[in-house]
Design a binder for these strands. Structure first.
Lengths: 185, 185
DNA sequence: CCTCTTGTTTACTCTCAAGTCTACAAATAC
DNA sequence: GTATTTGTAGACTTGAGAGTAAACAAGAGG
């Protein structure tokens, strides 16, 4: 008979967001019921509604927080040699959030907009950098999209492969990106 | 007052599959209602049930066909220098099916299995090829996943960028893959 | 001309998960 | 010790979309 642990409002909210991130990252938005989230949080379903208006509200909060974590660590200003390591650290600190953003939310029409801001901006920056090396607009566009995809997929593949040494990983992702740029020039 | 075009059963079935591929590729499985599919096919909703048992049955048929198109053109035997061009042709012949498989179905827990056969096998082949160059198991695994991702994302980026010359595209995707392999060695 | 098949329309049931309401229990703060 | 807040339990409403049923229309082939 375990005594139920009570939490102050703000703490519980965070804990629910953690649980929801895990739950949604497991099966995506639609396939995850609020019962699943509640179970994951170790709390009854009604409690969710004392913190969030609705399921979509909860999901947006989850994505918002993940996105905030991300931009806080990576920044959205420019691409430097600190960008990839920063991306790596962000993914390491919140792997479920990272996967959720780029493997799920990016494909969900209703929520794409959140992560799209980040993606579009990243691709734009990449395109600017590439404009100097690649004359043709269409091919510069292609390269920019692919560079972004490689950065993200490189990080996720690293998570999936069991997270071997992050330093080496950052180095290799950077070199992979360089390889793509070479290929496009 | 347009007269409704009638079709023999087999032809209508194919036409529905075409329409469904387009519809699902637009918004994903759950967000696409059978009404949407029916509208896209220019047919009433009831007709769908004369050809398919259920929504999931229809979706599986769509994915099956897309997968069949793909393996028919690409083959699932080994990786050669014809693989990327073949992948490209497959995507060109059925861009919606291609996007549907790799951007949506690959993330839908209920249907992942279909495209997973293809993906897993591809990654396995890549891993075998890389084993010679990369000693460490984890890193070989990482590289194999990334190589596959680059192939797919490279093709999709090419579709998104407006499909400039396919020959050049195949060449550049191949070189991008090489770049990734170099980076991982 | 008759029949079979492909089609439409409309209205219906069913189911599942979101979201609500009520009543009650117990930890904590003052 | 009492008020407040955080929690539970469970029954309930609702809505959307899947799936069904029935009656009717009209082209195609013999």
């Amino acid at each position: 008979m375990e005594t139920v642990r009570r939490m102050p409002r703000a703490e519980r909210r965070e804990q629910i967001l953690d649980a929801a991130t895990r739950a949604f990252a497991g099966s995506g938005y639609t396939a995850t019921g609020l019962d699943d989230v509640a179970a994951e949080a170790g709390v009854s379903r009604v409690i969710l509604y004392r913190h969030f208006e609705s399921k979509t509200d909860l999901y947006r909060a989850v994505l918002d927080r993940a996105c905030a974590h991300l931009t806080q660590r990576v920044g959205d200003a420019d691409f430097t040699d600190q960008t990839i390591p920063a991306l790596m650290r962000a993914a390491e600190a919140d792997p479920d959030g990272f996967r959720l953003l780029f493997r799920y939310a990016a494909r969900e029409p209703e929520f794409r907009d959140l992560v799209d801001d980040f993606s579009r901006e990243s691709v734009r920056i990449a395109r600017e950098h590439l404009a100097a090396r690649i004359a043709d607009r269409q091919w510069a566009d292609w390269a920019a999209r692919l560079v972004f995809a490689v950065a993200i997929e490189g990080v996720i593949a690293w998570l999936d492969a069991g997270r071997p040494d992050p330093g080496t990983a950052a180095e290799r992702v950077s070199r992979a990106i360089h390889g793509v740029i070479e290929a496009a020039s």
